[in-house]
Design a binder for these strands. Sequence first.
DNA 1: TCTGGGGTCCTAGGACCC
DNA 2: TCTGGGGTCCTAGGACCC
Length: 448
Amino acid sequence: MYGIADLDNCYCSCEKVFRPDLEGKPIVVLSNNDGCVVARSNEAKALGIKDGTPYYQLARQFGLPLTPVAHAKGQPIEVFSSNYELYGELTGRVVSIIRQEAPAYFRYSIDECFMYLPKSLEGDELQRWGEHLHHRVRREVGLPISIGMAPNKTLAKIASKLAKKFEVYRHCCMIDSDYKRERALEWCPVEDVWGIGRRYAARLQSLGCKTALDFARHHRDWVRQTFNNINIVRTWQELNGEDAVPNEALTTKKSICTSRSFNGMVSDKESLRTHVANYAARCAEKLRMQKTVASIVGVFVNTNPFREDLAQYWNFQEQRLITPTSSTLAIVQAAHEVVDRIFKQGYQYKKAGVIVMGITPDSPIQQDLFDTNAEEIQKMRRLDEAIDRINRMLGTETVVIGAQQYTQKDGKGKADVFSNAIKHDFRSKNPTTRWSDIMRLNASDERI
DNA sequence: TCTGGGGTCCTAGGACCC
DNA sequence: TCTGGGGTCCTAGGACCC
């Protein structure tokens, strides 16, 4: 049996952990640059707010400020910029509890974790195990979690939806018989099945499948011939009770991408190079974190596709490295070479990104046959290690390379590289990761 | 004026290898 | 009319996930 532990409205729930006054209020969390709604509390969903709504539209509809207003009272919706430092830390605590409770698990995303369930338990015992996990996470971290249990991952996901939806399950729903399976599939709209996206859902609906059960009852050959795709056949198999979707190969990533939309437009090459240097440096850091090196560095740039009145340009090119590396300096340099090739004067750029590919373990590295500079490489490694250590201890971007620094107009102040570039006007504090944000409670405080 | 960021996998077709 | 068999690698396009 598989289990899935899925945090309810993850980002919104994280915001509530240190703000109990938010309980019962509609909350939304915005994407980078305060662009779109990416998370909603139940109360916000009840107001009809849709995932992905641009914030300026929401602000217009509900009369919300475009930037924070001091002492705002009676605002109909609480708004937050995304605070990944907080979400990463709190969800990490949840995973450490799962590590203690489940025989084995693999993290699927920031807010979901698949688990293998204890073999020794069945029926009511398993149900109680799930409820215990829910309560422990709630008590020790303060986050609400729903648990689904079933013979495969697709059915476990459906079970977790039931657990969220109906209180009778006490946050933990188990599908362990054909009867329960069919009742669950009958309830589940086909577009809500894990593995069936917008396109497949539209086709299935046009073919008369409204619920997951309608789909499951078709013949396997019909599924294979209609879609000619192995993944959807596997989804069909799982709806019928088999265990068919492969478990995540817990290997290292095959590509790593860092990209951002700009806060405003960028038209000069120097600024673009600075942005790209930051994304490249971030990619190098991610490579080192998973102990890998990359042999290809790609860069893309594009203008704002929503501005149909402006000239449009999109380009992506790669630079191959002779020696695979995770060195910040080497990857930034390669990315800059690509920028020099694809930059065109006269456009208003809105977004850029760096992708590193050809990823392999960092030892042994295939050295360049003609490269006599092995000593240089060792020096660069030690430099990166030192920078990583300082940034881990004193906060990200305490040390950056020169190319990452945005020109400060006033010529002073710490180069807070990303915050200079990205809008996050509604960001909450980081009481679990920053000394300066530690909470103070007064004896009279209702939170005590 | 304002519209996110990060991934994986599959299929088809062509180039190329022995 | 006839013209092998078995592979890999790459790219583009189209899906999917959170």
